[in-house]
Protein backbone atom coordinates (compact mmCIF):
# COMPACT_ATOMS: atom_id res chain seq x y z
CA UNK A 1 0.00 0.00 0.00
CA UNK A 2 1.23 3.44 -0.85
CA UNK A 3 0.23 6.57 0.94
CA UNK A 4 0.41 9.74 -1.10
CA UNK A 5 2.91 12.27 0.13
CA UNK A 6 2.35 15.97 -0.22
CA UNK A 7 4.90 18.55 -1.20
CA UNK A 8 6.60 15.20 -1.05
CA UNK A 9 9.76 16.53 -2.47
CA UNK A 10 11.35 17.41 0.85
CA UNK A 11 13.60 14.44 1.24
CA UNK A 12 14.90 14.77 4.79
CA UNK A 13 18.46 14.18 3.66
CA UNK A 14 21.52 15.53 5.41
CA UNK A 15 22.71 17.24 2.26
CA UNK A 16 24.70 20.44 2.30
CA UNK A 17 21.83 22.33 0.70
CA UNK A 18 19.52 21.42 3.60
CA UNK A 19 21.82 23.33 5.91
CA UNK A 20 21.62 26.57 3.96
CA UNK A 21 19.63 29.45 5.33
CA UNK A 22 16.14 29.22 3.81
CA UNK A 23 16.11 32.95 3.10
CA UNK A 24 19.26 32.64 1.06
CA UNK A 25 17.83 29.71 -0.84
CA UNK A 26 14.57 31.48 -1.58
CA UNK A 27 16.27 34.65 -2.81
CA UNK A 28 18.85 32.74 -4.85
CA UNK A 29 16.32 30.48 -6.53
CA UNK A 30 13.97 33.37 -7.18
CA UNK A 31 16.71 35.48 -8.72
CA UNK A 32 18.06 32.69 -10.89
CA UNK A 33 14.54 31.94 -12.13
CA UNK A 34 14.05 35.58 -13.09
CA UNK A 35 17.52 35.57 -14.56
CA UNK A 36 16.60 32.64 -16.84
CA UNK A 37 14.67 35.05 -19.01
CA UNK A 38 17.72 37.20 -19.69
CA UNK A 39 19.99 34.48 -20.96
CA UNK A 40 20.19 34.71 -24.72
CA UNK A 41 22.46 31.84 -25.75
CA UNK A 42 22.12 28.07 -25.90
CA UNK A 43 25.48 27.61 -24.24
CA UNK A 44 24.32 29.88 -21.44
CA UNK A 45 21.37 27.57 -20.89
CA UNK A 46 23.64 24.53 -21.08
CA UNK A 47 25.76 26.01 -18.32
CA UNK A 48 22.66 26.62 -16.20
CA UNK A 49 21.43 23.09 -16.90
CA UNK A 50 24.74 21.66 -15.71
CA UNK A 51 24.55 23.86 -12.64
CA UNK A 52 21.01 22.69 -11.87
CA UNK A 53 22.09 19.05 -12.22
CA UNK A 54 25.00 19.76 -9.91
CA UNK A 55 22.57 21.18 -7.34
CA UNK A 56 20.20 18.23 -7.72
CA UNK A 57 23.06 15.82 -7.08
CA UNK A 58 24.20 17.91 -4.15
CA UNK A 59 20.65 17.74 -2.75
CA UNK A 60 20.95 13.93 -2.85
CA UNK A 61 17.72 13.71 -4.86
CA UNK A 62 16.88 10.96 -7.26
CA UNK A 63 16.78 12.02 -10.90
CA UNK A 64 13.49 10.12 -11.26
CA UNK A 65 11.95 12.39 -8.60
CA UNK A 66 13.07 15.42 -10.59
CA UNK A 67 11.33 14.19 -13.70
CA UNK A 68 8.25 13.39 -11.69
CA UNK A 69 8.21 17.01 -10.59
CA UNK A 70 7.99 17.96 -14.26
CA UNK A 71 4.72 16.07 -14.68
CA UNK A 72 2.36 18.87 -13.62
CA UNK A 73 3.85 21.32 -16.10
CA UNK A 74 4.24 18.79 -18.91
CA UNK A 75 1.07 19.90 -20.66
CA UNK A 76 2.02 23.57 -20.45
CA UNK A 77 5.49 22.72 -21.69
CA UNK A 78 4.26 20.74 -24.69
CA UNK A 79 1.62 23.32 -25.55
CA UNK A 80 3.97 26.30 -25.54
CA UNK A 81 6.69 24.43 -27.39
CA UNK A 82 4.32 23.29 -30.15
CA UNK A 83 2.72 26.70 -30.34
CA UNK A 84 6.08 28.41 -30.77
CA UNK A 85 7.23 25.79 -33.21
CA UNK A 86 4.33 26.11 -35.62
CA UNK A 87 3.10 29.64 -35.26
CA UNK A 88 6.25 31.75 -35.28
CA UNK A 89 6.57 33.64 -38.55
CA UNK A 90 9.94 33.60 -40.30
CA UNK A 91 12.09 31.54 -42.64
CA UNK A 92 10.30 28.25 -43.41
CA UNK A 93 12.44 25.17 -42.85
CA UNK A 94 9.80 22.50 -43.24
CA UNK A 95 6.12 22.56 -44.17
CA UNK A 96 3.37 20.02 -44.12
CA UNK A 97 -0.12 21.04 -45.31
CA UNK A 98 -0.89 24.21 -43.34
CA UNK A 99 1.79 23.62 -40.70
CA UNK A 100 5.03 25.46 -41.18
CA UNK A 101 8.12 25.15 -39.07
CA UNK A 102 10.37 28.18 -39.17
CA UNK A 103 13.92 28.47 -37.98
CA UNK A 104 12.82 31.25 -35.64
CA UNK A 105 10.17 28.87 -34.35
CA UNK A 106 12.73 26.19 -33.54
CA UNK A 107 14.88 28.78 -31.84
CA UNK A 108 12.05 30.15 -29.70
CA UNK A 109 10.66 26.70 -28.88
CA UNK A 110 14.01 25.49 -27.60
CA UNK A 111 14.39 28.58 -25.46
CA UNK A 112 10.94 28.27 -23.95
CA UNK A 113 11.44 24.57 -23.24
CA UNK A 114 14.80 25.24 -21.60
CA UNK A 115 13.41 28.04 -19.48
CA UNK A 116 10.44 26.08 -18.22
CA UNK A 117 12.52 23.01 -17.52
CA UNK A 118 15.21 24.91 -15.65
CA UNK A 119 12.56 26.79 -13.75
CA UNK A 120 11.11 23.58 -12.42
CA UNK A 121 14.56 22.10 -11.74
CA UNK A 122 15.64 25.03 -9.59
CA UNK A 123 12.37 25.17 -7.68
CA UNK A 124 12.64 21.43 -7.21
CA UNK A 125 16.01 21.91 -5.53
CA UNK A 126 14.46 24.51 -3.24
CA UNK A 127 11.51 22.38 -2.16
CA UNK A 128 13.59 19.22 -1.91
CA UNK A 129 15.99 20.76 0.55
CA UNK A 130 13.71 23.06 2.54
CA UNK A 131 10.93 21.98 4.86
CA UNK A 132 7.60 23.75 4.82
CA UNK A 133 8.34 25.44 8.12
CA UNK A 134 11.65 26.75 6.85
CA UNK A 135 10.00 27.88 3.64
CA UNK A 136 7.34 29.92 5.39
CA UNK A 137 9.79 31.30 7.94
CA UNK A 138 12.12 32.25 5.14
CA UNK A 139 9.31 33.70 3.08
CA UNK A 140 8.12 35.79 6.00
CA UNK A 141 11.60 37.14 6.50
CA UNK A 142 12.09 37.82 2.81
CA UNK A 143 8.87 39.83 2.49
CA UNK A 144 9.36 41.59 5.83
CA UNK A 145 10.60 44.84 4.20
CA UNK A 146 7.02 45.26 2.98
CA UNK A 147 6.10 46.13 6.57
CA UNK A 148 7.16 49.68 5.75
CA UNK A 149 4.13 50.01 3.51
CA UNK A 150 1.97 48.45 6.24
CA UNK A 151 1.71 45.11 4.50
CA UNK A 152 0.75 42.45 7.11
CA UNK A 153 3.72 40.20 6.38
CA UNK A 154 3.43 38.09 9.54
CA UNK A 155 -0.23 37.38 8.99
CA UNK A 156 0.35 36.45 5.38
CA UNK A 157 3.17 34.11 6.37
CA UNK A 158 0.99 32.57 9.07
CA UNK A 159 -1.83 32.11 6.57
CA UNK A 160 0.51 30.36 4.18
CA UNK A 161 1.94 28.11 6.85
CA UNK A 162 -1.52 27.14 8.14
CA UNK A 163 -2.69 26.47 4.60
CA UNK A 164 0.34 24.28 3.94
CA UNK A 165 -0.06 22.56 7.27
CA UNK A 166 -3.66 21.68 6.48
CA UNK A 167 -3.16 20.28 3.01
CA UNK A 168 -2.17 16.84 4.32
CA UNK A 169 -4.87 17.00 7.00
CA UNK A 170 -7.56 17.75 4.46
CA UNK A 171 -6.16 15.13 2.14
CA UNK A 172 -6.32 12.53 4.88
CA UNK A 173 -9.83 13.61 5.74
CA UNK A 174 -10.87 13.38 2.09
CA UNK A 175 -9.48 9.85 1.96
CA UNK A 176 -11.38 8.96 5.12
CA UNK A 177 -14.70 10.32 3.83
CA UNK A 178 -14.08 8.72 0.46
CA UNK A 179 -13.60 5.36 2.15
CA UNK A 180 -16.71 5.83 4.24
CA UNK A 181 -18.82 6.69 1.22
CA UNK A 182 -17.23 3.85 -0.73
CA UNK A 183 -18.49 1.56 2.01
CA UNK A 184 -21.94 2.88 1.22
CA UNK A 185 -21.58 1.79 -2.37
CA UNK A 186 -20.21 4.85 -4.15
CA UNK A 187 -17.73 4.04 -6.87
CA UNK A 188 -15.72 7.21 -7.41
CA UNK A 189 -13.82 6.14 -10.48
CA UNK A 190 -16.53 4.45 -12.48
CA UNK A 191 -19.52 5.54 -14.54
CA UNK A 192 -20.15 8.39 -16.95
CA UNK A 193 -18.75 11.87 -16.41
CA UNK A 194 -22.07 13.04 -14.99
CA UNK A 195 -22.22 10.11 -12.60
CA UNK A 196 -18.70 10.77 -11.45
CA UNK A 197 -19.39 14.45 -10.92
CA UNK A 198 -22.47 13.56 -8.91
CA UNK A 199 -20.58 11.04 -6.80
CA UNK A 200 -18.31 13.83 -5.60
CA UNK A 201 -21.07 15.67 -3.75
CA UNK A 202 -21.07 13.15 -0.87
CA UNK A 203 -17.33 13.75 -0.64
CA UNK A 204 -17.10 17.50 -1.07
CA UNK A 205 -19.97 18.53 1.17
CA UNK A 206 -18.78 16.76 4.34
CA UNK A 207 -15.21 17.80 3.55
CA UNK A 208 -16.16 21.46 3.35
CA UNK A 209 -18.31 21.30 6.47
CA UNK A 210 -15.54 19.63 8.44
CA UNK A 211 -12.98 22.11 7.13
CA UNK A 212 -15.06 25.03 8.37
CA UNK A 213 -15.50 23.35 11.74
CA UNK A 214 -11.80 22.75 11.93
CA UNK A 215 -11.00 26.35 11.03
CA UNK A 216 -13.35 27.50 13.78
CA UNK A 217 -11.70 25.23 16.33
CA UNK A 218 -8.24 26.31 15.26
CA UNK A 219 -9.12 29.98 15.59
CA UNK A 220 -10.51 29.43 19.09
CA UNK A 221 -7.53 27.30 20.11
CA UNK A 222 -5.11 29.95 18.85
CA UNK A 223 -6.89 32.76 20.66
CA UNK A 224 -7.03 30.64 23.80
CA UNK A 225 -3.25 30.52 23.66
CA UNK A 226 -2.94 34.27 23.39
CA UNK A 227 -2.79 34.84 19.68
CA UNK A 228 -3.93 38.29 18.64
CA UNK A 229 -4.04 39.31 14.98
CA UNK A 230 -1.41 41.90 14.18
CA UNK A 231 0.41 41.69 17.52
CA UNK A 232 4.13 40.95 17.35
CA UNK A 233 5.30 37.44 18.19
CA UNK A 234 8.73 36.07 18.97
CA UNK A 235 10.38 33.32 17.00
CA UNK A 236 11.54 29.89 18.04
CA UNK A 237 14.01 29.43 15.22
CA UNK A 238 16.41 32.27 14.60
CA UNK A 239 17.93 32.23 11.15
CA UNK A 240 21.55 33.17 10.71
CA UNK A 241 23.63 33.62 7.57
CA UNK A 242 26.70 31.37 7.76
CA UNK A 243 29.86 31.08 5.72
CA UNK A 244 28.39 28.32 3.60
CA UNK A 245 25.53 30.64 2.66
CA UNK A 246 27.96 33.26 1.48
CA UNK A 247 29.78 30.63 -0.53
CA UNK A 248 26.59 29.68 -2.35
CA UNK A 249 25.63 33.29 -2.96
CA UNK A 250 29.02 33.74 -4.56
CA UNK A 251 28.59 30.55 -6.61
CA UNK A 252 25.19 31.59 -7.91
CA UNK A 253 26.41 35.03 -8.93
CA UNK A 254 29.37 33.44 -10.66
CA UNK A 255 27.19 31.04 -12.62
CA UNK A 256 24.78 33.80 -13.57
CA UNK A 257 27.54 36.04 -14.86
CA UNK A 258 29.20 33.17 -16.68
CA UNK A 259 26.00 32.13 -18.41
CA UNK A 260 25.51 35.65 -19.72
CA UNK A 261 29.14 36.09 -20.76
CA UNK A 262 29.60 32.74 -22.43
CA UNK A 263 29.56 33.03 -26.19
CA UNK A 264 27.12 31.21 -28.38
CA UNK A 265 28.63 28.18 -30.04
Amino acid sequence: MKKRSFFGQYNFSDSLLCKLDPRVKIVLVFSIVVFLFFVKTISGYMLLLLFSIFLILLAKSKISDVFRSLAPILFLLLFTVLFQLFFTPGKVVYSFLFLKITSEGIYLATYIAMRLMLLSFFTFVLTATTSNIELTDGFESVISPLKIVRFPTEDVALMISIAMRFVPVLFEEATRIMKAQTSRGVLFNRGSLMQRARSFLPLLLPLLLNAFNRADQLAIAMEARGFVVGKARTKYREMRIKKIDLLFIFLFILVMIASIMVRNI
Binding site: I177, A180, Q181, G185, P202, L209
Partner: peptide, 21 residues
Protein backbone atom coordinates in the same frame (compact mmCIF):
# COMPACT_ATOMS: atom_id res chain seq x y z
CA UNK B 1 -18.23 -7.24 -7.88
CA UNK B 2 -16.84 -5.19 -5.01
CA UNK B 3 -20.23 -3.53 -4.45
CA UNK B 4 -21.68 -6.88 -3.47
CA UNK B 5 -18.86 -7.33 -0.97
CA UNK B 6 -19.58 -3.90 0.46
CA UNK B 7 -23.25 -4.72 0.73
CA UNK B 8 -22.40 -7.85 2.72
CA UNK B 9 -19.79 -6.21 4.93
CA UNK B 10 -20.96 -2.80 6.14
CA UNK B 11 -18.36 -0.62 7.83
CA UNK B 12 -19.32 2.24 10.13
CA UNK B 13 -16.29 4.49 10.48
CA UNK B 14 -15.25 6.53 13.48
CA UNK B 15 -17.42 9.62 13.94
CA UNK B 16 -19.66 8.47 11.05
CA UNK B 17 -21.88 11.54 11.41
CA UNK B 18 -19.07 13.55 9.82
CA UNK B 19 -20.00 11.99 6.48
CA UNK B 20 -23.50 13.47 6.41
CA UNK B 21 -24.39 15.41 3.29
Amino acid sequence: DIRKVRKKVGIVFQYPEEQFF
